[in-house]
Write a protein that binds this DNA or RNA. Structure first.
Length: 480
RNA sequence: CGGGGCGUGGCGCAGUCCGGCAGCGCGCACGGUUUGGGUCCGUGAGGUCCCCGGUUCGAAUCCGGGCGCCCCGACCA
């Protein structure tokens, strides 16, 4: 598999990327370039992501709600770091209803402020806490430079917002949601993400601490795939989110926020995609199985389609997402390639020979070409397919993990770090530098601290740069 | 904003140097053929060659001016 094939810039990749998934830029009206158009198939992948996350959110007691798209400019300005961080990328509405507005409205880049305003009304007592809210929404950030899926001016996401009575509880929530993101990424999306804390420079505007899951794409660039922020009391103070404690004293809440966006669709594409197109993890795939009927004459056609109908029913009854490619006028070979491009995990071929023998051909997408083909009996097909899907899910994760681990290296000195990241790999190194030194590294190597990973099984070498405070293990990489 | 590149049918492009009928591949429509790895053949629809001006008998092509987009960098999920 060539790494070239799965970069957003590669010709091979973009050919089907645009056709199959979506195009990031509107061709005609230039002012909205970089906005998002998600075609149906791509949107179904997003719906798979939504389902996986929503199930987990419900299990942890979070409830969905919806807040306004427009935020009064004054709200944004109320938290000093927040406004400073987001100002350059805000889209602002100045006119509405044919008149100039008294106060401009910001198109939400994120909703801490407007939700904070609501929270201050909703929360009166410690009995109202914790308040656990999630919103599925679109947001707009006017980036200078957009990239298909990985950075669009408008994107869809979920943003969670919670308020708690204690700092410890807020921290626990922040970490719990990061864990949920990581669990989702690893188990559902088959992306072996690394959990960690962001450096001060990369922290969310207005947060105390920001945690991240970092994924390695097939071109070895890092992709922040989800974030969870402990906001401390910064927003509670800015928006007067207070409660009456059991002690009968007014206290400020401790709040958190966390988000995961359509960028995750890009992460799936660029983690698993190969020269032939997408490879979708079964848990997210819109179609887990596609059945391609094969027949030569009308007499065969009826028998084949009858068998196919029966198999479709069995698989559907077994709770599997199955699609039958009934298109006329395309050869089986065409359909094989077509569904491989779309990344369907299992293709089932049913022809006259299979009808006769009671067998079926299964082709797994995770293995290249014909290597993924096997003959199975139609009896017990549901169980066979289920096991195969589980195996594909597992193998995609293992592939990605092996690839990732092969491209993370320990750096004992700054020279080593530089050499590693300039060659495109990730470097683990002890870090005790300050902001200025971190910026200097970016300037010199193009790499940034992706995170300070939580798990540090092995101790890295000597300090890369010395500074005040103790050194932490940091992960350096070039990122999207 | 700095550096590079490109604007030609729905998509991808050739043609531009050296002016002479607007082309190719894919896709689309129709007919036939084929169907176990991207069938083949035929017919057809589809164009402001980015815009404005100039040179010329004649401009996609040359000259002048303008506009737009993409890529790399700075900002960032």
């Amino acid at each position: 598999m060539s790494e070239q094939a799965v970069t957003a810039q590669s010709e091979d990749f973009s050919r089907w990327y645009n056709e199959i998934v979506y195009r990031a830029d509107l061709a005609a009206p230039s002012p909205v370039r970089g906005c998002v158009i998600i075609k149906p198939y791509g949107y179904e992948i997003w719906e798979g992501i939504k389902a996986g996350l929503d199930r987990r959110f419900k299990a942890t007691g979070h409830q969905n709600a919806y807040f306004p798209l427009f935020i009064p400019e004054s709200y944004i300005k109320r938290e000093a770091q927040h406004v400073e961080g987001f100002s350059p990328e805000l889209a602002v509405v100045t006119h509405a209803g044919g008149k100039e507005l008294e106060e401009p409205l910001v198109v939400r880049p994120t909703s801490e402020t407007v939700i904070g305003e609501a929270f201050s009304d909703w929360i009166q007592s410690y009995r109202d806490l914790p308040l656990l809210i999630n919103q599925w929404a679109n947001v707009v950030r006017w980036e200078l430079r957009t990239r298909p899926f990985l950075r669009t001016a408008e994107f869809l996401w979920q943003e969670g917002h919670t308020a708690h009575a204690s700092e410890a509880e807020a921290e626990e929530e922040t970490r719990q949601m990061l864990d949920i993101y990581a669990e989702f990424a690893i188990e559902d999306a088959a992306i072996p993400v690394i959990k960690g804390e962001k450096s001060r420079l990369e922290r969310f505007a207005g947060a105390l601490r920001t945690y991240t899951i970092e994924a390695m794409m097939r071109d070895r660039r890092a992709l922040q795939s989800g974030t969870s922020h402990n906001l401390g009391q910064n927003f509670a103070k800015a928006f007067d989110i207070r409660y009456l404690a059991e002690s009968n004293l007014q206290e400020y809440c401790w709040t958190t926020s966390w988000g995961l966006s359509t960028r995750m669709v890009g992460a799936v594409v660029m983690t698993h995609g190969d020269d032939k197109g997408l490879r979708l993890p079964p848990k997210l795939a819109p179609h887990q199985v596609v059945i391609v009927p094969i027949y030569r004459r009308d007499a065969q056609r009826a028998a084949v389609l009858e068998a196919v109908d029966k198999l479709q029913c069995q698989l559907q009854d077994g709770g599997l997402r199955v699609h039958v490619d009934r298109r006329e006028g395309h050869s089986p070979g065409f359909k094989f390639n077509d569904w491989e491009m779309r990344g369907v995990p299992i293709r089932m071929e049913i022809g006259p020979r299979d009808v006769e023998s009671g067998k079926a051909v299964l082709a797994r997408r995770d293995l290249p070409g014909r290597a993924g083909k096997q003959f199975v009996t139609q009896a017990g097909i549901v169980e066979t397919v289920r096991e195969l899907l589980a195996d594909i899910q597992r193998s995609l994760l293992e592939d990605a993990r092996a690839f990732r681990d092969a491209h993370i290296q320990e750096a004992g000195t700054y020279a080593e770090l530089r050499e590693i990241v300039e060659a495109g790999d990730w470097a683990r190194a002890a870090w005790a530098g300050d902001d200025a030194q971190e910026l200097a590294v970016k300037d010199e190597t193009g790499a940034t601290i992706r995170c300070f990973p939580f798990a540090q099984p092995e101790e890295p070498g000597a300090c890369v740069l010395t500074g005040r405070g103790s050194a932490r293990v940091a992960l350096f990489a070039k990122a999207y």
